[in-house]
């Protein structure tokens, strides 16, 4: 079995600073890390490798320094890693990203399943996995909370959708996205980490995807959605109103608040 795990390098969200006045995100202030949900996807793949035998390839699109995340993937059990990095890929929205990843997967050719995180913590869209699935005409299992494999049946995941939990079993190839509850990603062993730090990560550029991806399909020019403006809203302040011996007034204010959040079901005036 060959599993491709899609990964993204993201800023450490606990450390990113936002300048409310200038409207700037200071990405440099934070270190980068592997998108936490992608570690769940990787862990699911590595568990499958241990239980059923599989080869795991980590695939990441990003700037050259994103090879750090791929080394992290190697230290956590991936067998191979591949970086897609080219200035031509810069500025891709989810659609252009999905097309670039799908092109690379097309060039890799053989695989049995694609795993990805439920979403990334910076973009927070959760779209890329689903779009890759559509581009490759694969069944999609979103929000996998557990995964099992049975010889002759295929990969099965429990997902939470609509009003309950469903088991989705994919008999052939499929794309799965994983939630944080799917597993607990293992920590890298120190010796594995040392080895991965010295690994050489292959990198494909746009030219390497010739025949699979046209320049017009990736990067800023291949992106149908464009960010026009960014606003950094100030942190909300607590209203700090305190009511004593004034319950009716308190309940009035609370009602206004609940209504503003649409939490009251059509209480007619």
């Amino acid at each position: 079995m060959h599993i491709i795990v899609l990964m993204k390098e993201v800023p450490d969200m606990e450390k990113v600073r936002f300048d409310t006045e200038k409207g700037v995100i200071d990405r440099k202030s934070a270190g980068t890390e592997v998108n936490p949900f992608d570690l769940n996807a990787l862990e699911a793949a590595v568990q499958l490798k241990e239980s059923a035998g599989a080869t795991v390839t980590a695939l990441c699109m990003g700037p050259p320094q994103a090879e750090k995340s791929l080394k992290e993937a190697l230290s956590r059990g991936a067998d191979e890693a591949l970086l897609l990095s080219d200035t031509a890929f810069g500025g891709s929205d989810t659609w252009a990203t999905a097309r670039t990843l799908a092109a690379a997967i097309g060039k890799i050719g053989t695989y049995d399943a694609i795993f990805a995180g439920e979403k990334t913590v910076d973009g927070d869209t959760g779209q890329v996995g689903a779009q890759v699935a559509q581009l490759l005409a694969l069944p999609l299992v979103s929000y996998a909370e557990s995964l099992c494999w049975e010889e002759g049946t295929g990969l099965a995941a429990v997902v939470s959708l609509w009003d309950g939990f469903y088991r989705k079993t994919v008999t052939g190839k499929g794309l799965f996205t994983f939630t944080k509850t799917a597993n607990t990603p293992r920590l890298p062993g120190v010796r594995d980490k040392m080895k991965a730090r010295k690994a050489v990560i292959p990198c494909w550029k746009l030219a390497d995807l010739a025949g699979h991806l046209d320049a017009s399909e990736t990067g800023f020019s291949g992106s149908p959605t464009k960010v026009k403006r960014i606003v950094i809203p100030p942190a909300p302040q607590r209203q700090g109103q305190c009511y004593r011996d004034a319950l009716p007034e308190a309940l009035d204010q609370l009602e206004t608040l609940l209504k503003s959040k649409h939490l009251l079901k059509e209480v007619e005036a």
Partner: peptide, 21 residues
Amino acid sequence: SFGRSLAPRLAAALNTGLTAD
């Protein structure tokens, strides 16, 4: 959850962009 899973596939099928959430 369902909408966020369905819409990206739909957007991809219609060959158009999608803005999330």
